[in-house]
Write a protein that binds this DNA or RNA. Structure first.
Length: 567
DNA sequence: GCCGTTTTCGGCCCGACTGTTTTCAGTCG
């Protein structure tokens, strides 16, 4: 898919136009970039159908440019723009506090083209002599350069969850903190988080600011205002906190949860209905009409309530206008978890310990799927050990009150076959099949490999369908559209793998698969008892993909699950 | 360059914070 590639080019064009001081056009290109980015389908298909102008933000001229790029692999307009500018925009833009105006000014005055030039100029104290710049600007940029060079990757949701809970708990203790909630991408349940955004209601914002800027592990206070401050922790994490009045809570939450594109779209909708929306409330002229809670604002705008996970301006507003937002699956809907490992392969707890942990978590079932096959690094089961494994599971069943499913996570081999016969696979409750090795195939080969397995073996669940590892390993090349269709046809549940660094399928993929009519299974892929708790991450992905409890196997009743697993 | 329940022309989300100023431009979210 060229979607992201094209979105990036449109963004770059916007950057260059902005640098040239052109107004509004950059915004048009950015809107188009967001439209392309949010597409659920391959842009090439739209191009072939002549439907590029149906993309939000794409009109006649941008459609022509996209066509040219798809057709020829090049874009004249973009190349000409790039020739005109001499600076490394992308690089300089990364520095906090550096924007198009300053980049242009610094190039005109000091011929600064990139970070290296900037560093040199600062060392020679050249910047502070310029109008509008000073010594502290120099220091800010220097720190910014350091930050860019040692830039932390985006944080995993699971790694920030304890910090979010701790800060919320600590702040709630103080009587001057009436309310505190997390907003931003964390609240939207994204798999990775850039920074944390907290929202607080208090009559004494000064005290809150003081408390906030005195958090432990702060490396630097980035901004300290009367109602809004930012800090950076020693681990590189930025945290923003804003204090609002009780009356503004709803409008502020809406604003702070975002995302930005969603906010802009809602504000535009408000405008079209004669209102003005900001973090301070919904206004008719100068009159405040709503803002105490989010529901009031949605009601005034004649919108169905939109769950935070859906807020990214990818159709949720249109759906809410027609009351078509489905009831999203919740953590409480999850009755049990699939795809768990034990000491029998590469896990670190016994079958019994894992089952007891699941029972203690009030789950109604657990499914054991230790590795089977050639993945030697994971100490896989073979046919002989599988017999003992199943006997052991039988013993565990007598010691816990929850349903214990037997099964394996079996490798999908290079040619699309599995290392166990159809007959033996049918004796297992739950067969998870997944690709683990020989992952560097072409898209066509990989797609055929996975589809062939689903067509020829009694597979219940296709494990981690793209095999990505966030921040570490890209997904393998595979035509998911095709995989979804074959999965649907063969009644294979698609896994939403909930392991913190996996979270595969992603929300976007879940949504695409739902459109095909697929069903899902939430797998914890736990390798110890601690990891069992992370099924909420899978729920995040499911919710971001618009899934309801009807779409997720884990939410069904046990008799219905057993029936669905029959091969 | 895009878009339309007042518009095919004339708008384009909105406000806080910072640094360098003395009233504001630039950046950020």
């Amino acid at each position: 898919m060229k979607n992201l590639e094209i979105a990036k080019i449109l963004d770059n064009i916007a950057d260059i136009l902005e640098l040239q001081g052109i107004e509004f056009k950059p915004r048009a290109y950015r809107n188009a970039a967001r439209g392309v980015e949010n597409l659920a389908e391959d842009i090439k298909e739209l191009y072939e159908k002549g439907k590029l102008e149906e993309i939000p933000g794409v009109g006649k001229h941008i459609a022509e440019k996209i066509s040219e790029y798809i057709k020829t692999g090049r874009l004249k307009y973009y190349n000409q723009l790039k020739k005109k500018i001499k600076v490394n925009l992308e690089e300089l833009n990364l520095i906090p506090g550096m924007g198009p105006k300053k980049i242009k000014f610094l190039y005109e005055k000091l011929k600064i083209k990139n970070i290296k030039d900037l560093e040199k100029a600062i060392k020679k104290k050249k910047l502070q002599k310029l109008k509008g710049f000073g010594e502290s600007t120099e220091q800010d940029f220097l720190r910014g350069i350091q930050f860019v060079k040692s830039r932390p990757k985006r944080f995993l949701y699971a790694h920030l969850e304890p910090i979010v809970k701790e800060i919320t708990k600590q702040f709630s203790k103080y009587p001057f903190v009436k309310k505190i909630e997390i907003a931003g991408s964390f609240r939207r349940g994204k798999e990775t988080i850039g920074d944390l955004d907290f929202l607080v209601v208090s009559n004494e914002p000064g005290k809150v600011m003081k408390l906030f800027t005195a958090l432990p592990d702060i490396k630097r206070v980035l901004a300290k205002g009367t109602t809004k401050s930012s800090v950076r922790l020693t681990n590189g994490l930025q945290i923003d906190l804003r204090v609002v009045k009780e009356k503004e809570w709803g409008s502020a939450l809406l604003y702070f949860i975002g995302n930005k594109q969603h906010n802009i779209a809602v504000r535009k909708l408000a405008l079209s209905k004669g209102y003005k929306l900001s973090e301070y409330g919904l206004f008719k002229g100068k009159k405040w009409v709503a803002g105490r809670n989010e529901q009031d604002i949605f009601k005034k705008l004649k919108l169905q309530y939109i769950e935070p996970e859906l807020r990214q301006n990818s159709g949720e507003i249109e759906a809410a206008l027609q009351n078509k937002i489905p009831p999203l699956v919740t953590v409480q809907n999850i009755n049990g978890v699939f795809h768990n490992h034990t000491k029998w392969s590469d896990g670190s707890n016994t079958l019994l310990e894992m089952a007891q942990a699941a029972e203690a978590m009030k789950l109604k079932f657990i499914s054991f799927n230790d590795h089977f096959g050639d993945i030697t690094i994971a100490n896989p089961l073979d046919e002989k050990r599988l017999v003992s494994y199943l006997k052991e599971i039988e013993k565990v069943r007598k010691k816990v009150k929850i349903r214990v499913f037997s099964g394996v996570e079996i490798d999908i081999l290079k040619n699309g076959s599995l290392g166990l016969s159809v007959k033996k696979l049918k004796q297992l409750d739950v067969v998870v099949a997944a690709v683990h090795m020989a992952t560097k195939m072409s898209e066509k080969e990989m797609t055929e490999r996975v589809c062939r397995a689903m067509e020829n073996y009694p597979i219940n669940i296709l494990g981690h369908p793209t095999n990505r590892l966030i921040n570490t390993r890209p997904p393998y090349q595979i035509n998911l559209e095709k995989v979804f269709q074959v999965a649907k046809k063969n009644n294979v549940f698609l896994e939403i793998n909930a392991a913190p660094e996996t979270q595969d399928l992603s929300g976007e993929h879940v949504r695409a698969a739902l459109k095909v009519g697929c069903k899902f299974s939430l797998g914890t892929d736990a390798h110890d008892t601690q990891n069992l708790q992370f099924y909420n991450l899978g729920v995040n992905m499911a919710r971001r993909g618009w899934a309801t409890k009807k779409d997720i196997l884990n939410c069904w009743s046990l008799p219905r699950i057993e029936k669905a697993l029959k091969k």
